[in-house]
Design a protein around this nucleic acid. Structure first.
Lengths: 334, 334
DNA sequence: TTTTTTTACGACAACGTTGTCGTAAATACT
DNA sequence: AGTATTTACGACAACGTTGTCGTAAAAAAA
């Protein structure tokens, strides 16, 4: 089943049929209808592979993210997919597992017209952006969200991580914390650094001198992270507040406190970045900074499609900042 | 940059270059190397759109799922993607949001060679499988996982939902429950029915006559679900055990119990299907039946690729059953 | 040496669509 | 009525790749 067969059935040239199907003004309403009816009758559908090839457009976007097992990236994909579906686009998913090597390989796959645009949230290990610059040079529409590389110069969509880091820290201070630890995951990531700077500036603003020993870099390994956190409480500057930059580190903190029979929030107050709706049900309920994940997906996808369709290019903001919510629960109040 | 340009640079015909790049036996090792070097030098990559079109293969699979904001489908995608990446395939994601209409539209999009294979977990609203039969008739490799339609006759990968329903119910009975409510989400879904049947048979096996009023069908609306659950406790057959077939209903139960100052597990015991790693941290820790989600993704993807590559077709099981884990925590023991 | 086979490459026709261009016929304008 | 324009369609050449077939030259077999 293809255009030629359909055309033969209709006694029309296949170029006429092709135009009729795409509602070209060159074709009379009468023949359009004839063609449409016959197409429906014979269940004709254009061959997307042929069409994509001919037009050198794939009607597909790629989403590159570190992981999908996560209450943040899930809703983001949801938001992206909702826009893509509206626009009639398809969504490819690629996972980097926070590896720069994987991110590199994936970027290479996408250099050659396989997708019409790319959305990416960087791997925590990504320390340089050559592979992304190549994509930019090839003029493939590219949008960063959350974990961005602003050097590349394509639009970015983020939350106000610095501000959140600041107010979360200040919240702990207001609730009596004097020794606040900061748990983070990467030295490369934009979000980690912004959050850390917010934390540091909040300390400074409240005349608390920061202790480098209270800043802990964690990794993928749950066990070593727990050791790292446990180690905090055996130092000579024991924290009375913990600010985790990702949820899993707050969970690890809960487990360590259980182990060390430290009471949250009496002995240690805890606050974290998290998008889990279950945070409210923890024991004690966990204070969170929660991102507008779905909106972030929709917003960045919307920008990507503007780039793809080259519409209103001059009105695309280089940087879009969405507001996160500080949700105070029992884990961080005295 | 394309084959012709590359061929001209090498003073070879473009068909020779094409073959050399694909390591054809028709080409001498010497020219192969020449071609490969030049290709690298000029950074030539095949145009995937042209190649896909010519071969009528997309090197892409589609994953159709109800949602992605979920601790189950996340790891499943992870598993799928890990196999796809090994095989050099790309992964398209489509969300149905549990709507049959959406599922139908998506199926239609995939009827025409856009993908080489499809993995699907049905929408809860899906009540007939015509759209899936069409895919089967078009001989598009198709694998069902978790929420299956066995009528279609393509391979399915599931967990032992009936058995899990049975043992979870029996566990509650063993812990003293006599009035066990079952919270479910759909009358269409294979998993819901299997779980319910396990529940019913466990009651029967323990000489507890089942009360239809204790079986509640819930939906997407959180508020009405809560009302539904709250209503359970105002009936004349108040439950002392709640078996939720999805996590969100267990969470709603927790919230209702808080509201009604019912103690879990003293007044009501709760167990649920859930893949959240945070279940252990709830107040009280929540007993769960946890699926091997990642493995399910890998297993069903592996089967799909056997169908795609037509390898060992006779050794593909029609039905693969993975084992889930019953994890007993404080919420369900006396 | 002659004949057959193999090796290594080139020519070329697809794959199904889209878009440009050409052109009769129909309509509109002097 | 004669000319200009519009309408409605067909012919055809791409798009870049892959795979089939044809064929000189080289190697092997006779």
């Amino acid at each position: 089943m293809n255009l030629k067969i359909l055309a033969k059935e209709l006694n029309l040239s296949f170029s006429t049929v092709s135009k009729a199907l795409r509602d070209s003004h060159e074709i009379s309403p009468a023949t359009k209808q004839r063609v449409l009816e016959k197409a429906k009758e014979l269940n004709y559908q254009v061959n997307p592979l042929a069409s994509n090839f001919r037009k050198q457009k794939s009607k597909t976007i790629a989403v590159i993210i570190p992981e999908v097992v996560n209450d943040f990236f899930g809703p983001v994909i949801n938001g992206i997919e909702s826009i893509a579906q509206e626009k009639g686009y398809h969504v490819l998913i690629y996972l980097t597992h926070d590896s720069m090597q994987k991110e590199l390989e994936i970027s290479k796959l996408l250099q050659n017209g396989r997708v019409d645009g790319i959305m990416i949230s960087l791997a925590s290990q990504t320390s340089n952006t050559d592979h992304l610059n190549i994509l930019k040079e090839k003029e493939i529409p590219l949008v960063f969200f959350d974990r961005i590389a602003s050097e590349v110069g394509t639009p970015v969509v983020i939350t106000d991580d610095y501000h959140c880091g600041f107010i979360a820290t200040e919240h702990l201070i207001t609730n009596g914390c004097k020794h606040i630890a900061f748990l983070t995951i990467s030295e490369n990531l934009s979000i980690s650094n912004d959050r850390k700077n917010g934390y540091l500036d909040a300390l400074k603003a409240n005349n608390i001198k920061h202790d480098q020993a209270l800043i802990r870099f964690c990794n993928e390994d749950d066990m070593s992270n727990k050791d790292n956190i446990k180690n905090l409480f055996s130092g000579n500057n024991q924290p009375d507040g913990i600010f985790a930059s990702v949820e899993k580190l707050a969970v690890a903190t809960y487990q360590i406190c259980e182990e060390l029979t430290l009471n949250i929030p009496k002995d240690v107050k805890v606050i974290t970045f998290s998008n889990s709706y279950m945070a409210a049900l923890l024991n004690p309920p966990l204070s969170t900074i929660t991102h507008p994940a779905f909106e972030m997906g929709r917003e960045s996808a919307t920008i990507l499609f503007k780039l793809i369709e080259k519409k209103g290019l001059n009105r695309i903001p280089k940087k879009t900042v969405l507001k996160s919510n500080l949700i105070i629960r029992a884990s961080s109040v005295r």
